[in-house]
Write a protein that binds this DNA or RNA. Structure first.
Lengths: 319, 319
DNA sequence: GCAGTTAGTTGACTTAGTCAACTAAATGGG
DNA sequence: CCCATTTAGTTGACTAAGTCAACTAACTGC
């Protein structure tokens, strides 16, 4: 068995939709069972889950009306009225009269109601704490990151979080090497020698980095790296644009073009005359960007690399 | 601003426990609201969630008893009896008589019951499909991986999934570079040049790999990389043990020692006389492993690397 | 001034269970 | 073999958590 397998590590392979659906439903059953226990007659208190939700909503606001609470929690107004009356009888709630609309009964928790709320809040926090107490800080962080991912992927798609560009940080080049290795294996079948090439380029970049003549940009979105590009000195007159990549999940947003433009602007700023780059013909999206930004094809050459027969292309831009 | 920041990318920093608890509860509220809709009077059907759960349980088994179902779903036996009677009246359920225990009523779905179950199963799958239809395959994979992480971290800690060792795969070296970069920055404050060194070593390893004289092992646990080690040829008589690392979350399980032993065994098998390694004195756990396996300290030398003053150590093992 | 709408309340009811007593069958000790 | 105890399942009575609709008082806009 070869020591370097062609299977891809890290990100799991895209799976069949049916399989994904089954996995999500199975997770849902697990999660509902796990947290369902937290939602029963609330954690040993004499209050039902609905009552606790009402308390939470009242605690979140300084003052509110029954209509607001009913709307927020999708509750029957008659039912809510009874719940509020119970809280009032127990001296947890103040019900006023609207200044400008006598129909309204402005609601606010009493001191006792605030104390009750804090007690229930504490119990809930302790319940969660007991779930994670066996986890190391790193595992808790991993859990939170995973929850953030679940939430981001299951939330209604509004405007995706804007991306921004930032400088390189520790950990970035390993991640970029990893993602390029995985993505080009998945998308084009390139083997581990491509990953090794990327590693070599980036190792050299970091070890010989000169901020007067070189630069790097990382695109970040929702705290995750979604793309990158590097400006590398070739000579006093010539710079190279290297290793443009954009995550598939973030394509179509103009990130690639933005990265290329930043690179070009920086090359100009640093006084280069020519910006060159080497790519392969299969990287069609990148090529379109290069062409659009004025790069010209100066040389093509067939080669066998990364386990494949490829057509390498050299492009140049006069600055 | 330097182009390479000292902030660490990738894994979020460990957070305060209180903050983690709040985040988890917030996620819980989000999740319950999102999937709570799926659990209401079941997806437009005339069945309640409890009835559907009973159907699922009956469908999972060829035959079962009321006591089994009640136990599995934590249902009141009297209530279950009524639910089963309803299903029987609707010709979805067969209720037999126990062969060896006449008290028992063996239960099995009728043809109609199986059709009903499949219909509900289909509706549930369609509901989930509609949640993820806007996601790309990569995003679905990311979601599934995140759910797997949430589940793994929130499941009761039984015996942690055993780890196993495997060969390198595409994507591994980038990941290892990334993790070493991040971990040594967090634990020892080493800067990006350490990450670059690791990248260079691994790039060279992959590009000049000779399976007759070199080897690599990746420790994997629950589908995640949790450690690795490399055997590299120095000369015909001398090999090097390089880049031993174990994830903090997986330490204490003997993974490091296991990796070192595999490396030593392989070095012997390939006919080397000496196995050498270079480490730094701050890596105490690793040093203890090396000493325990018979390595001897042959040289120490102060140096300034990775942004720090360090004491390098060369160790050797006669094979 | 008044018809229509809204905020909130209350009465009657439905639904989803819970609790306990019951019958029939099985088990095990004397 | 007898009998006390336990178990599988059923049924009656009840509770709890809501739903539905009619109601009162107050507001709005023509």
């Amino acid at each position: 068995m070869a020591v370097i397998e062609n299977a891809v590590a890290g990100t799991p392979k895209p799976v069949e939709t049916a399989e994904a659906i089954d996995t999500i439903r199975d997770f849902n059953r697990f999660y509902t069972r796990q947290f369902g226990l937290l939602n029963q007659r609330f954690l040993g208190s004499p209050f039902t889950l609905t009552e606790v939700r009402v308390l939470y909503e009242l605690a979140r606001r300084t003052t509110s009306t029954a209509t607001e609470i009913a709307g927020e929690l999708s509750l029957d107004p008659g039912y809510l009225s009874r719940l509020l009356s119970k809280l009032e009888r127990q001296h947890h709630l103040n019900r006023g009269r609207g200044e400008h609309d006598a129909r309204q009964r402005p609601l606010s928790l009493t001191e006792g109601g605030i104390r009750l709320f804090k007690k229930l809040d504490q119990a809930s926090s302790e319940a969660v704490a007991s779930l994670i107490e066996g986890l190391s800080p790193a595992q808790v962080s991993e859990l939170l990151a995973a929850m953030s991912t679940v939430r981001r992927r299951l939330s209604p798609v509004t405007a995706q979080a804007d991306y921004h560009l930032r400088a390189l940080r520790v950990g970035d080049i390993g991640w970029i090497i990893h993602r390029q290795g995985v993505l080009y294996a998945e998308e084009y079948g390139w083997d581990a020698t491509y990953e090794a090439l990327v590693a070599e380029i980036l190792a050299h970049f970091v070890r010989h980095f000169d901020p007067n003549t070189e630069n790097a940009w990382v695109a970040e979105q929702g705290g995750a790296v979604v793309g990158s590009i590097f400006l590398v000195r070739e000579s006093g007159r010539i710079a190279k644009l290297r290793l443009l990549y954009v995550e598939p999940s973030a394509r179509g947003l103009g990130i690639g073009r933005r990265l290329v433009r930043e690179c070009i602007a920086s090359a100009r700023e640093k006084g280069y005359e020519t910006l060159t780059l080497w790519t392969n013909d299969v990287l069609a999206s990148a090529r379109h960007i290069y062409q659009a930004e004025g790069f010209r094809l100066v040389k093509e050459e067939r080669h066998h690399s990364f386990g494949r027969d490829l057509l390498g292309q050299n492009w140049e831009l006069r600055l």
